[in-house]
Design a protein around this nucleic acid. Structure first.
Lengths: 149, 149
DNA sequence: TATTGTTATACTCTATAACTATA
DNA sequence: TATAGTTATAGAGTATAACAATA
């Protein structure tokens, strides 16, 4: 099932692809490292950050994590055991459990964010104009509509 | 400990940081998906790709994967059991084992590369000029010296 | 003594399947 | 009957500690 492609990527594209891979690897590694500083795994840190925005049903967390719902049970269990998250009933549907951050969970998230310097630090050295260019390029890469002005 | 920062990130920087996070998540997910298409885990795919460039001692693989050497044993075991990799003695140091891709391993890597469309596809839609801009921005993010011309 | 790779162990994340309680 | 969350199970990646072979 390998699709045969008539378009051969040019050297510049290949170089950019490689650089993107390097950025991804670096970002991922630093995220794990920052999470570990707070005794969290990457998955725990992602869930905690997600829940700091709003309480969510287990199912929604699984969708966001791109994993099976059964896995979320354990992740929330461990966060709950540490007092960072709590399970609440959903008034509208008694089958649903909402996972929500505690006060301590939110403060952990905010300290976690502080540790994530990689993406922010080098960006600060770019002139605002180039940050805007980068923003537009990234949006196009993600298939998002161009920035309105 | 959290370093207190006097510089407060501006909205544009925050937006770019968020976009980078989105790109990283997307890239990572698509890499795992591409690996799974060939019945490989992400770690197996990364090691196999790495070894397709040159045979490496177990220790070097661990360094590249940013994990403990003891974990590499199992990863190589599983790749070897499938005939994608083989262990060879190092003539210079009898303690060392070199992991090397087999012919089938190399062909898997090349098919794997074919499946990695995310980073390539949207880039192709960018004019060459903007790809060059992106390349320079990424290099600066990574702390690489600016492109010579 | 130091280094390389391995084994043993324990924990986390993952998918799958079966279960429960609601809807 | 369908859905939400859970449990049970098995495989993979991870760190730690201890070990054999070699340097």
């Amino acid at each position: 099932m390998a699709t045969t492609r008539s378009t051969r990527p040019d050297p510049l594209t290949l170089e950019v692809v490689e650089l993107i891979g390097a950025v991804v690897a670096r970002y991922y590694a630093e995220y794990e490292e920052a999470a570990a500083k707070h005794a969290l795994t990457g998955a725990q840190a992602r869930v905690l950050s997600l829940l700091s925005l709003e309480p969510l049903p287990m199912r929604r967390i699984a969708r966001s994590l791109k994993c099976e719902p059964s896995n979320v049970t354990g992740i929330i269990d461990r966060l709950e055991a540490r007092g960072l998250v709590e399970r609440r009933p959903d008034p509208n549907d008694r089958r649903v459990k909402l996972a929500a951050t505690t006060e301590e969970g939110r403060s952990t998230v905010s300290r976690l964010r502080e540790s994530l310097d990689f993406a922010r630090e080098p960006l600060a050295q770019l002139p605002a104009e180039e940050r805007a260019v980068l923003r537009d390029l990234l949006k196009r890469m993600l298939g998002v509509e161009p920035t309105p002005r």
